[in-house]
């Protein structure tokens, strides 16, 4: 069926479905800014945006492009007060690496995608830590970054599962 033959309702639904990956990532990012009043959490909170970037870069790069990864990182920088560009660069590079190798990870079991995510996340954290340190002109403490990385890797199964259950149900194309 071609796009021209779809009704207005179908086209609207199609359009909205295609916005879900980015919209969900933005929502998670905004939620992550909210003060939790849990001691010590704010230093090590997981980078949920990275999980979204990784997942969609493998399965639906057409719906979550490099520009989206960049914008998501930039929004994180602005809202969290981190040096502008550091988060954007980290997510962008992660997206770049994954989307170029996506055929390798596509349709691979969780036992493969999870460790690969851990490696990609380590790279992204390192980039952001170095970038932020360069801009701020200081060596930032590394412990929160390492713990944050572990938290992100630990959050991957749950959020990855949520994204996987959206992919193919909510996020699907009515046309080919």
């Amino acid at each position: 069926m071609s796009l021209a033959r779809l009704s207005l309702g179908q086209r609207t639904s199609q359009f909205l479905r295609r916005q879900v990956p980015v919209a969900l990532a933005v929502l998670l990012l905004v939620l992550a800014q909210v003060p939790t009043q849990v001691p010590g959490l704010v230093e090590v909170a997981p980078m949920l945006g990275l999980i979204c970037v990784y997942y969609w870069a493998i399965y639906r790069p057409d719906l979550f492009g490099a520009a989206s990864a960049f914008a998501l990182g930039l929004l994180d920088d602005i809202l969290s007060g981190a040096p502008l560009g550091s988060g954007a660069l980290a997510l962008l590079l992660a997206h770049g690496v994954i989307s170029r190798q996506r055929t390798l990870f596509h349709a691979k079991p969780f036992a493969v995608t999870w460790p690969v995510f851990a490696v990609v996340a380590a790279g992204a954290y390192l980039v952001r830590w170095l970038g932020a340190g360069l801009v701020r002109g200081a060596v930032l403490p590394a412990e929160p970054v390492v713990v944050g990385w572990l938290m992100t890797v630990a959050a991957y199964p749950l959020l990855g599962w949520l994204l996987a259950s959206l992919n193919g149900t909510v996020v699907k194309d009515d046309i080919d």
């Binding site: 800014q33 909210v34 704010v42 994180d76 969290s80 981190a82 952001r128 830590w129 403490p141 970054v145």
Partner: peptide, 12 residues
């Protein structure tokens, strides 16, 4: 306080 995040890079 309406937002508190990114503490690994900046305390704000």
């Amino acid at each position: 306080v309406i937002a508190d995040s990114g503490a690994a890079y900046v305390h704000s």
